[in-house]
């Protein structure tokens, strides 16, 4: 590697160590908050796409098509630069001047709404994978549409989609790195910043890489446990990704 001066200890010195910690913390916070939006919203969208009502199905499909066909980075810019301009003038002014943590909140909302489209897709395919006969049997014993979803479809569908949902959850962690483009100092941007200040590129990026891998490993482990706990006895499930 030629003339490269290794400098691992510098990462333990302030302010660099503090940067890593705060960056990592921001990454986790963005991911968790975005998921808190994405999961319920995505579930609603997924359910809407399997509903009897044509209008609901269309709305759900339109949402997914919109958010899946525009690059996430473009969406981020739209939320940060364009939406404030398009809002009615009072709201626009508040967003531009008085809203706390504008970059952070924008990133969370953008990521949350984008991931909701992915969750929506998983939920839809999970519900559709249940044979039509189940829905018919449930209706035949007198359950309402709502009850059919609540007691028959959703409990089975969500167990089926644990592996792809895990994948999407990990995706939120990885996509949080896009927040750096609007100025949020999450983990990847902090690593870049350390590299710019200390020229310890290899060391800085390695730390970031290791932290991302640790998060991934931990999430996969937890999801395996969840999958085992919620497994229906005797049913065959697909392994986690």
């Amino acid at each position: 590697m030629g003339a490269y001066n290794w400098n691992w200890p510098i990462l333990l010195k302030e302010p660099y160590f503090g940067w890593i910690v705060s960056g990592f913390g921001k990454t986790i916070l963005i991911a968790v908050l975005a998921w808190a939006i994405a999961f319920p919203l995505g579930s609603a969208i997924g359910i809407a796409r399997t509903a009897e009502s044509r209008a609901l199905r269309f709305a759900g499909t339109a949402y997914v098509d919109l958010f899946r066909n525009i690059p996430l980075l473009v969406q981020m810019f739209l939320w940060y630069f364009v939406v404030p301009e398009l809002l009615p003038s009072d709201w626009g002014r508040w967003v531009k001047r008085d809203m706390p943590y504008p970059q952070f909140l924008t990133a969370v909302i953008c990521l949350g709404l984008y991931t909701a489209s992915r969750v929506g897709e998983q939920v839809r395919s999970g519900i559709e994978s249940i044979p039509r006969g189940q829905r018919n049997a449930a209706l035949a014993i007198g359950l309402t549409q709502f009850q059919v979803y609540r007691h028959v479809l959703i409990p089975v569908a969500y167990r089926t989609i644990i592996p792809p949902l895990t994948s999407d959850f990990l995706g939120v962690f990885k996509n949080s790195s896009l927040a750096l483009t609007i100025g949020v100092l999450e983990l990847t941007s902090q690593a870049r910043q350390i590299e710019e200040y200390t020229f310890a590129a290899f060391e800085a990026f390695t730390v970031a890489t290791v932290l991302y891998c640790m998060v991934t490993g931990l999430v996969i482990l937890i999801m395996r446990i969840v999958e085992n706990r919620t497994r229906i006895p005797g049913a065959i499930t697909v392994g986690a990704s």
Partner: peptide, 15 residues
């Protein structure tokens, strides 16, 4: 490679 954000991979190879 699937555990890392693409942005980080880009930074890695860029440097």
């Amino acid at each position: 490679l699937r555990s890392m954000p693409l942005i980080l991979v880009i930074f890695w190879f860029y440097t």
